[in-house]
Design a protein around this nucleic acid. Sequence first.
DNA 1: TACGATT
Length: 294
Amino acid sequence: MTQEEIRSLFSSIGDVESCKLIRDKVTGQSLGYGFVNYHRPEDAEKAINTLNGLRLQNKTIKVSFARPSSEAIKGANLYVSGLPKNMAQQDLENLFSPYGRIITSRILCDNITGVGFIRFDQRIEAERAIQELNGTIPKGSTEPITVKFANNPSNNNKALPPLAAYLTPQAARRFGGPIHHPTGRFRYSPLAGDLLANSMLPGNAMNGSGWCIFVYNLAPETEENVLWQLFGPFGAVQSVKVIRDLQTNKCKGFGFVTMTNYDEAVVAIQSLNGYTLGNRVLQVSFKTNKSKTT
DNA sequence: TACGATT
């Protein structure tokens, strides 16, 4: 939404004195919020009553009185991960509300990811929430949550690098379509059996409606389509994720693929573990609970 | 960078 579209929308309520869309200082991308000043206070109130919650371009806009600008309210936005899959937005607010006044809250992707956001009124409230809640296990859950300051929503998805040399020549020629898997290209390693046996503990790989597969040794330039192409031929793929460094936007060397059916996941793992993609030998297994800190 | 997730 442009600044002019905002002005137009809010002018339908009353006389707008000024209007500002806030953009990222570096990229110029909209940060998703802005400010409108009305000449008459009653128009501001009317705008809130009329426009708050309006569905617009697949977004629900929020309209409220602006808080006074101050340093104290900056950097008060938190990123929360490891939330229980059944946690609702209200549960999230209840968890954080003891630490301050919540301005906005959100849970991503209808609770599938376990990731959410909390914006407090004051940064000091956010800091306190991190101290008190990071690493704690919410009541009724079994997993500790991570609470940290959120990154800026823009800044990230700029200039995606093109598919490049990490594809095999065969795959490169077929760019745009699925990767064909010629018979005999995959290693059916006897080691794969052990790998599977050690990874079948439920709660790790099994993820709600699917089986989560860990893929290691991806090239820095890897994009999601590579994972779709690799795993798609083996059956129903629900989602893929390439894990990237926030700063460089390069793949950190691993990713995840969630497949619906256990049998197909097993065949995919057996087939793709040890598979040479580009000049890298992939390691593919069911996801475990390993993490950086343990 | 050897088991995540960024509105």
